[in-house]
Design a protein around this nucleic acid. Structure first.
Length: 895
RNA sequence: GGGGGAUUAGCUCAGCUGGUUCAGAGCAUCUGCCUUACAAGCAGAGGGUCACUGGUUCGAACCCAGUAUCCCCCA
């Protein structure tokens, strides 16, 4: 045979991807004769390269899209990337730095020119990589969140929401990323457990501020942590913020501090006097029960400050160093100051102790920097109005989450959602279309010209020029682009009634990770309802995280993530795709192991060899059709498998759908069917069998195609001469039919295969090897079945002769199936004692089973309460058990 | 601290409204096999008191309560 015994994917994959593109199979356009099926890709960052998470996510999307395409739908998978404000800007800044250019030396325009240059060079890498995976995106539709049309969409939405009163500008406590030097939203903050230190600082009580102490009895008994009462110890994890202290708060119900009413304290080292305030917010148990209040650097302190009318002293610069308001340590980084101030406090005798404690720090999702709560003037979007309908859509299953357990999470977030901080102090992104007048007021407009008109109207100053207006420096959060994605990729904002959006929207399925359920999914639902009065997708399939075999997240630091492209090169895209899906139930983390990918590759190879076998057969039209039983049986199995697969797909159980076809191909088709019909070596096969077999193989290729697009396309073309547009990629998805008598067909074959299994078990037990010719003697009440399937039993069992008898030959090994007993004459291999023991064991087991069924049936309450069909089944079990017992007893007697 | 989910074979998971199979799959393991499609393979086998303790029921992996452990989200 000329074909290699192992399949080599690299030879074929590039070829077919190119052909598919040449044929335009992935292109989609509105077609009223077809049902649309739309998926928008979760746009990867332009800074990204393909990682294992993308592999999983995009494999799932491609499986869904390819199947829909084969089902005759107008399948449209829209690819694209997002501009990733913070990440990209950081990357470009770093690159410029290498070239000796500082961002601050550049104008905004110059910087953006560099950034776009970078994007054009590297921004498309990940999309090219997706092609190697086989992703069947409509590449003509590739979009980018910062391209002109999508920018237009963002600005339109901003202006619209501002006009609706849903976007506002205000001073709020925001999450400040000192690394990115920008505000970020609550969703971009990640809490991390850390081992932190608690510093116990001594604040001097200003003696003159203390009321003369009457010898109050309660005071005598109260705990007095300060021996001389001249000091108050305050615990803090952030000693570097004492320069921003404006008060120390204690709980009014805490008797230890009642004498401090009206007292003043001196900030350690700094010496500034601050009041002691009383508020029940302070927890008595925590630290010393005294809390330093720094409204500029803590949300809770801020609220306390507002309540008690305290000033705000912001001592931090944008980059995390202390500013001149701190007076001490000006210009030094916050963490350096923390170390230094602890030393200085120690030396000054103002540090009582340091304790270790488990704490949480908030970090930036993008830069990993420790977040500073910072009072800042930013743009916000009101969420309440949009959250309500978006919550309802999921609650009432207009949008279904798969698996549904994420509904709870979604609800919790939606019910507690806070306003979204959408401004970022960056240049890479859509600049906020707000324009400031010389008097400090502002207008919001799509263009500068519009803004000028409005400004003139608003200010009454007809002499205003464009140059008098200053556009807001900030850009919008990247997610403020992404949340419009399902609409903006079809130009639904610029042109809300265009053919594409009317046809392809709402999309069908969205595949993404649960980590961006709030960032993205929830907000897309909001945007869909707000702007199209319709949710953007019907199903959200939430994938798990790809972890290593030990359950650790894949990370560059650990070096536990394989390079996806290496894997594809080594195992083939088909092997990698199936490998990933083998172990990926929706919502469950995938423990990646190279074994899975090996299994995928092995499966490709299995399929390849099945093809080689069939391909090598010569048909002889003069031969009789001898394989009717096998052909009918496999058809029944095939149809049942199609039904099962469709059901799995319906429920988004992708790995189960894959497992169904995997077992059908490997076990039923290769291990059984092909063995049944296979002619003897170098003998021809009858034409009828070959015709059926080829048709079955074609159907299998179709069913496999969504999972393994490349090998199936290769074999599709190897199997037969094909027309110019005849590709499995666009072949019709098999529709299940219900063959007549399918249940009986399957049941009969099961019985025949049980006989084969019995024979093979004897071979194994007796160490006979697969080829030693054996004969079979059947003592059965179903001789017709044995006769019908004699060919199969002979072939699969390597049996030369089947005969019937009422008793087995003396020197034989037997096995019992139902009421029948089957004998294999074996001179010289019989160990009577062992045979007896084996049969006795089997008998004992059967009797135990019978007894338990009998007991159940004898139970009056069971007979009364159980459904009739359950009762009937139990009776059947009893009858079967009794038949088997009789057969076993006979067998024992015969020994 | 609040909420949610989970716990079934060595591993990853199915097991639909309690009742066909005295618990299933894939992988892994073990024993034979280089049997002319495939050793990336073939044939066969072993392996689980369904986390624990109680309860409801004729009957519980499944329902209820409690305990333990783990995971996730939020603070």
């Amino acid at each position: 045979m000329s074909l290699a015994t192992t399949y080599s994917p690299t030879d074929v994959e590039a070829k077919w991807y190119q052909r598919w593109q040449e044929q335009g199979f992935f292109k989609a356009k509105p077609n009223p004769k077809k049902q649309p099926y739309t998926v928008v890709i979760p746009p990867p960052n332009v800074t990204g390269v393909l990682h294992m998470g993308h592999m999983l996510n995009n494999t799932i999307q491609d499986v869904l899209v390819r199947r829909a395409r084969m089902q005759g739908k107008e399948a449209c998978w829209v690819p694209g990337t997002d501009h990733a404000s913070i990440a990209t800007e950081a990357k470009v800044v770093a690159l410029l730095k290498e070239q000796g250019i500082s961002k601050t030396d550049l104008t905004r325009e110059e910087f953006l020119a560099h950034a776009f240059q970078w994007k054009d060079k590297y921004g498309g890498i990940i999309l090219e990589q997706l092609k190697q995976l086989g992703a069947s995106c409509d590449w003509d539709r590739t979009r980018f969140t910062m391209e002109p049309d999508l920018t237009d969409a963002v600005l339109r939405v901003f202006v619209d929401l501002y006009n609706k009163g849903l976007i506002y500008r205000g001073v709020r406590m925001v999450n400040w990323d000192p690394e990115g030097r920008t505000a970020i939203s609550d969703e971009e903050v990640i809490a991390k457990d850390v081992q932190a230190k608690m510093y116990y600082l001594k604040y001097e009580i200003v003696a003159s501020s203390l009321k003369p102490q009457a010898a109050s009895p309660s005071n005598e008994q109260s705990l007095q942590p300060e021996a001389d009462s001249l000091w108050l110890t305050v615990a803090t994890s952030r000693p570097e913020t004492i320069m921003a202290d404006v008060a120390v708060a204690v709980n009014p119900n805490d008797p230890r501090f009642s004498h401090l009413a009206g007292a003043k304290l001196r900030i350690p080292l700094l010496g500034r006097e601050i009041p002691v305030i009383f508020d029940e917010y302070v927890s008595i148990d925590f630290g010393t029960g005294a809390l330093k209040v720094t409204p500029a650097h803590d949300l809770n302190d801020y609220e306390l400050g507002v309540k008690h009318n305290l000033p705000v002293i912001d001592i931090l610069a944008d980059n995390g160093t202390l500013n001149e308001k701190a007076i001490l340590y000006v210009g030094q980084d916050r963490f350096a100051v923390r170390k230094q101030i602890a030393k200085d406090l120690q030396e000054a005798g103002l540090l009582e102790k340091i304790e270790e404690y488990a704490s949480i720090v908030q970090t930036s999702e993008r830069t990993k920097a420790v977040i500073e709560p910072k009072l800042s003037l930013q743009w916000f979007m009101k969420m309440e109005h949009m959250a309500k309908p978006a919550l309802d859509a999921v609650e009432n299953d207009t949008v279904r989450l798969h698996p549904p357990k994420f509904k709870n999470m979604y609800r919790a977030w939606m019910e507690n959602v806070r306003d979204w901080c959408i401004s970022r102090q960056l240049w890479w992104g859509q600049q906020i279309p707000a324009y400031y007048l010389p008097d400090g007021t502002f207008v919001v407009a799509l263009t500068a010209e519009d803004a000028l008109q409005q400004a003139i109207a608003q200010s009454g100053r007809a002499d205003l020029q464009l140059s008098d207006l200053r556009q807001d420096e900030d850009v919008l959060d990247t997610w403020f682009s992404s949340w419009l994605w399902p609409i903006s990729v079809f130009d639904g904002f610029k042109d809300p009634d265009n053919a594409d959006i009317n046809y392809f929207y709402p999309t069908n399925d969205l595949v993404t990770g649960p980590d961006i359920l709030f960032f993205w999914v929830a907000r897309m639902i909001m945007a869909g309802i707000e702007y199209r009065q319709e949710v953007p997708f019907k199903n959200v399939y939430l994938t798990g995280i790809v972890r290593d075999a030990q359950g650790r997240k894949m990370s560059k630091q650990l070096g536990n993530s394989p390079d996806p492209l290496d894997l594809i090169a080594q195992y083939g895209a088909d092997g990698v795709r199936t490998g990933m899906l083998f172990s990926a139930p929706a919502g469950n983390d995938l423990l990646y192991d190279v074994k899975l990918v090996e299994q995928g590759r092995n499966f490709s190879n299995k399929l390849w060899n099945a093809f080689r076998l069939v391909k090598g057969w010569e048909a002889d039209a003069s031969l009789p059709f001898v394989n009717e039983k096998a052909v009918t049986w496999f058809n029944a199995r095939l149809q049942a498998a199609i039904v099962e697969m469709d059901d799995h797909f319906e429920k988004f159980r992708m790995s189960d759908a894959l497992m169904t076809i995997y077992k059908l191909v490997w076990d039923d088709f290769c291990a059984l069917y092909l063995e049944m019909v296979k002619p003897a070596y170098q003998h021809p096969i009858d034409a009828e069998t070959l015709r059926h077999t080829t048709a079955y193989l074609e159907t299998l290729l179709k069913l496999l195609h969504p999972f393994m697009p490349f090998i199936t396309e290769e074999l599709w073309h190897e199997l037969a001469e094909r027309g110019p547009r005849d590709y499995v990629t666009v072949a019709p998805w098999p529709r299940a039919t219900a063959p007549a008598h399918s249940a009986e067909t399957l049941a009969s074959m099961d019985k025949a295969l049980a006989i084969v299994a019995g024979i093979r078990a004897v071979r194994n037990q007796k160490n006979l090897g697969p080829n030693k010719p054996l004969t079979l003697v059947a003592k059965t009440d179903e001789p017709q079945l044995v006769t019908d399937y004699e060919g199969i039993i002979r072939k699969l069992g390597s049996i030369t002769e089947v005969s019937f008898a009422d008793a087995g030959p003396a020197a034989s090994v037997s096995f019992v199936l139902g009421a029948g007993e089957f004998f294999i004459p074996l001179e010289g291999h019989i160990d009577m004692a062992a045979e007896r023991t084996r049969l006795e064991k089997e008998l004992e087991y059967a009797q135990g089973f019978r007894d338990s069924v009998q007991k159940k049936l004898g139970n009056e309450k069971f007979a009364q309460n159980a459904k009739p069909e359950v009762l009937e089944k139990e009776r059947q079990k009893l009858a079967d058990a009794e038949a088997k017992i009789a057969a076993l007893e006979q067998a024992l007697k015969g020994l």
